[in-house]
Every structure is written in C-alpha cells, then in structure tokens.
C-alpha cells in the first residue's frame, strides 16, 4: 500500500473513507488499538470541520519519518473562508457555527503534534501527527 492517501472531502461518506484510510495506514505503522481510534476520531473531527466551514477540501494521510521515529501525518486542507482568529478557534467551546466547538481543540488533544495555518478568504491547513511507538532495532 502507498505511504500516502489523498481523500477528497465533499460529503459525509468521504469523512468515513478518510478515517478508514487513517486506520489502515496507522495499523501499518504499528499504532496501538487506542491510538488508531484516537487518530480515526481526530480525522473525523477535521474532515467534518472542512464540510462544515468550507464545504469541500482534502485530507492527506502520510507516513512521516523524523530520525528513528515514524508517525502518521494528517493534513486537512480547504480553500474555504479561513479562520479569522486561530487562537480563539482552539479554545474549548468556541464555535462560529453553533456546534459544540470541539472540532479543532478536540482533534489537537487526540494527536501528538498539531498546527494550523489559516488565511481569511484563502483557506485553512491543519497538520497533525501521531507518532508510532519506537521499534526496537
């Protein structure tokens, strides 16, 4: 299987596809069953955010290496309206759509690394990583 999957996000069925692909790739990396569920849930929240705020976008899942460490990187990108105040969007309970406001802060808590780049009017890129446990040489 390829080390990278690009999943277009246009409908809720795509949300299910994205999290399924994330689980597959994470399983190949040797993530624990708990981590696989955290990853799938984070992908679900990020993909839903795309649908909700931008209407469409893309989730890219890939294996990344840093030294001896391997991880699963999730990039959720869209060309939507962008987030005017990223710091505020990461606060619990903040939502501009009347939702629970857990999407971004929730996804951040499920992953090991998390960053957001957003430009109002241009779109948003969220990048998160879950590192696999070290494999003994």
């Amino acid at each position: 299987m390829a080390d990278e999957h690009r999943v277009p996000i246009r409908s809720e069925a795509d949300v299910l596809t994205a999290r399924h692909r994330g689980r597959e790739l994470g399983a190949l990396l040797g993530l624990s069953s708990t981590d696989l569920i955290l990853v799938a849930t984070a992908i679900s929240e990020l993909a839903r955010n795309i649908l909700q705020y931008a209407g469409k976008g893309e989730v890219t899942l890939r294996v990344v290496n840093r030294g001896r460490h391997r991880g699963l990187e999730i990039v959720a990108s869209d060309d939507g309206p962008g987030i005017p105040d990223v710091a505020r969007a990461l606060e619990d309970g903040y939502s501009s759509s009347g939702g629970l406001g857990l999407g971004l802060p929730g996804a951040r808590r499920l992953l090991d690394e998390f960053e957001i780049h957003s430009e109002p009017g241009k779109g948003t890129v969220v990048r998160g990583t879950k590192w696999a446990p070290d494999v003994a040489d």
């Binding site: 069953s33 708990t34 849930t41 857990l102 929730g106 808590r109 499920l110």
Partner: peptide, 14 residues
C-alpha cells in the same frame, strides 16, 4: 462503549 472509545471521548471532552 469500548474502552478505547471511552478514552477518546474523554480526550475530546465529550
């Protein structure tokens, strides 16, 4: 509710 799912929900704040 599976144990991993419970753990994930707590992390998410659900």
């Amino acid at each position: 509710v599976r144990p991993e799912v419970a753990f994930s929900m707590v992390r998410l704040g659900l």
